[in-house]
Design a binder for these strands. Structure first.
Length: 270
DNA sequence: AAAAGCCCCTGGATGC
DNA sequence: TGCATCCAGGGGCTTT
């Protein structure tokens, strides 16, 4: 589920409510991708000042450090004033004066990591290599093009790698490339400034639109009942192998790049 | 330095 | 119905 839009929507859904909360206790469940990095008791008494996002990471600012939260492949956060018993996939609880922040993550690719500061090694290890924020002011066509010029890998994989631009996951990579009319296999370095500019706009557009629509996810969207008025973002290509392209009717193709599925239209994307 | 593979883990869908 | 197989929205680490 969680690419940049879903992470941002998650953030927006509880940042204001948790801001100013004092941590009462913390509970760790089964091991996640990385250990918390401190004793849960060490968090008691700390105040959560706010929640920021960097790429697909959420940063909970504490008065003496921060918690880095990543949702991995299957993670989701809830923040509620109730505190029901932990289910089998509830692997982290942060009990605060304003509610309980809970991470549910069946596959446990997610993580909650404590760092003394954003400049501390444990934080730099995770955040240090990240590219520019696609919805921020630093993401501009020229710089994006320059970043692509240095990479010879297929553009789809460069988008996913997150060291040029962050937050673009497997779904939105396919969707952005479709919107830009670029074949996913195109070597990043061979993309002209004009086409890089189109891709730049497509990435911004698809991510911003997804945030606006509440972070709809294509799989959930396709499985949901009676939600046609709620979700307005529709996948043009993702998970549509064999179905007609919404623009030209040619069948959408599925291929594998770096062990991940890529969907594209052979006619619309060159 | 960059690119390609591997792997962590569980659950749902599919096929026999 | 039961069981095996495949696939999944991420990304750090190791190997080329």
């Amino acid at each position: 589920m969680p690419e940049l839009p879903e992470v941002e929507v998650t953030r927006l859904s509880f940042a204001d409510r948790i801001a100013g909360a004092r941590i009462v206790s913390a509970r760790v469940g089964k091991p996640l991708r990385w250990p918390l990095g401190c004793e849960p008791e060490q968090l008691v008494g700390r105040v959560v000042h706010g929640v920021r996002r960097r790429g697909k990471y959420l940063l909970l600012d504490l008065d003496d450090g921060l918690l880095l939260v990543h949702l991995g492949m299957s993670g989701s956060l809830s923040f509620a004033t109730t505190h029901p018993p932990a289910g089998p996939h509830d692997h982290f609880d942060l009990i605060t004066s304003r509610g309980v922040l809970r991470l549910n993550d069946p596959r446990r690719f997610g993580a909650v990591v404590h760092a003394r500061a954003e400049s501390a090694p444990e934080a730099v290890k995770l955040l240090g290599g990240l590219g520019v924020e696609p919805l921020g002011e630093d993401f501009d066509p020229q710089a994006f093009h320059a970043g692509l010029q240095r990479r010879h890998a297929p553009i789809k994989q460069v988008l996913l790698a997150g060291d040029v631009v962050v937050g673009v996951g497997n779904i939105y990579a396919s969707e952005a490339l479709f919107l830009a009319g670029i074949r996913p296999t195109t070597r990043a370095s061979r993309i002209s400034l004009a086409r890089a500019s189109r891709l730049h706009a497509a990435v911004r557009d698809v991510l911003a639109r997804a945030v606006e629509k509440g972070g709809c996810t294509l799989r959930d969207f396709s499985n949901a009942q009676g939600e046609s008025g709620y979700f307005q973002l529709e996948a043009n290509v993702y998970d549509r192998a064999g179905l007609p392209c919404r623009v030209c009717q040619a069948p959408v193709r599925r291929m594998v790049q770096g062990q991940r599925a890529t969907y594209y239209c052979t006619r619309c994307q060159r």
